[in-house]
Amino acid sequence: MTNNKNLTWHDYTITKKQRRNQNGHKSFILWFTGLSGSGKSTLANATAKALFTREIRNYVLDGDNIRFGLNKNLGFSEEDRKENIRRIGEVSKLFVDSGQIVLTAFISPFQKDKNQVRQLVEQKEFVEVYVKCPLAECEKGDPKGLYQKARNGKIKNFTGIDSLYEEPINPELVIETNRYSVEECVVQVITYLEKAQLI
């Protein structure tokens, strides 16, 4: 909550329930977390396409893309990473309120930060998807060459090299992208959402 006493919360005329009813489906956050190069963005976008073909309204928030605009003033220090996730959590909450599914693809290395996002929304409105891939595999398939730059000291505070990635403690889903094709991974996500009666 803000400390500014000149601000007043304004309730919306249209409720989240009404928006969901109009859209014909539930709304929630699908939070894809994992190392750089693990396949988060690829899986999030492929899942979004699968949902879209079912006429389920959704939007993808991608870590790199967000840093071009909303979070362009943030670096990669631990404090900036926390603020990065805090802002994304608040934006994601707005998408949930709008009646849509929001898919977020962020490394989000710290468990505490993800827990804070989870607490912003109601039960069953936050689905954590751990996109699990061994560091060596992520480095092998590094299209941006970021790991090599980090190894050479050209990038500081790079997750998995000189900055910690805390494996999720109890995610709703663990997807091993080094073992399955993108299509198979999407099926795992969709199957979970169906069984959880989220779609």
Rank of each mutant, 00 (worst) to 15 (best):
F68D: 12
L193S: 04
Q188C: 02
I175T: 02
R81L: 11
L193Y: 07
R179Y: 05
V131T: 06
T53Y: 13
T33Q: 04
E167G: 05
L135F: 11
T177H: 05
V189R: 00
T33V: 15
D142P: 01
N58L: 06
L94Q: 11
P143A: 08
H25Y: 09
I101V: 15
I190L: 13
K140L: 14
W31R: 02
I14R: 12
A48L: 06
R57H: 14
G160R: 03
P171W: 09
V129E: 00
K114V: 08
T13G: 00
A150M: 04
Q197H: 13
K154H: 11
W9T: 13
I199K: 05
T159Q: 05
T8W: 02
E139G: 03
I169H: 07
K93E: 15
N45S: 13
Q123M: 07
D62K: 03
H10C: 06
I101P: 00
Q22T: 13
F126T: 06
L193H: 05
I101G: 00
E55I: 06
L146P: 01
R87S: 09
C185K: 00
V129W: 00
Q22Y: 12
E78I: 12
N4R: 11
L103V: 09
C138M: 08
R54T: 13
G75R: 10
P134N: 06
R57Y: 13
P134W: 07
N3R: 09
R54Y: 12
K144T: 08
N45R: 15
S27T: 07
Q100I: 12
I85K: 02
T47S: 15
K82L: 11
R67N: 05
K49H: 14
W9N: 10
I190Y: 04
G99V: 06
G34I: 01
K156F: 04
G34L: 01
I56H: 08
N84R: 11
N21H: 06
D113H: 13
V187W: 01
I14C: 02
K149N: 01
Y130S: 01
V182I: 15
K49Y: 14
I85M: 06
S27L: 04
I155Q: 04
E137M: 11
K16H: 10
F52T: 15
I161R: 02
M1Q: 10
P168V: 07
L7H: 10
K16I: 03
P143D: 10
I56V: 15
Y180P: 00
A46F: 09
S181P: 04
H10D: 10
P109E: 10
Q119E: 15
T53R: 14
R87A: 09
A48E: 14
P109W: 07
G99S: 10
V91K: 04
H10I: 14
E125R: 11
E90D: 11
G37S: 05
I101F: 05
N152A: 14
G99A: 09
N58G: 07
I56D: 09
E125G: 10
F106S: 07
I107A: 02
K124W: 01
V131I: 14
N4V: 07
L94V: 12
A44W: 03
G39E: 03
E90Q: 12
L146T: 04
Y180C: 07
E184F: 04
S98L: 03
G89C: 07
E166A: 06
S41L: 11
V121Y: 04
K140S: 12
H25R: 08
Q148P: 00
V127L: 09
F68C: 07
E79D: 14
E125T: 12
V189E: 00
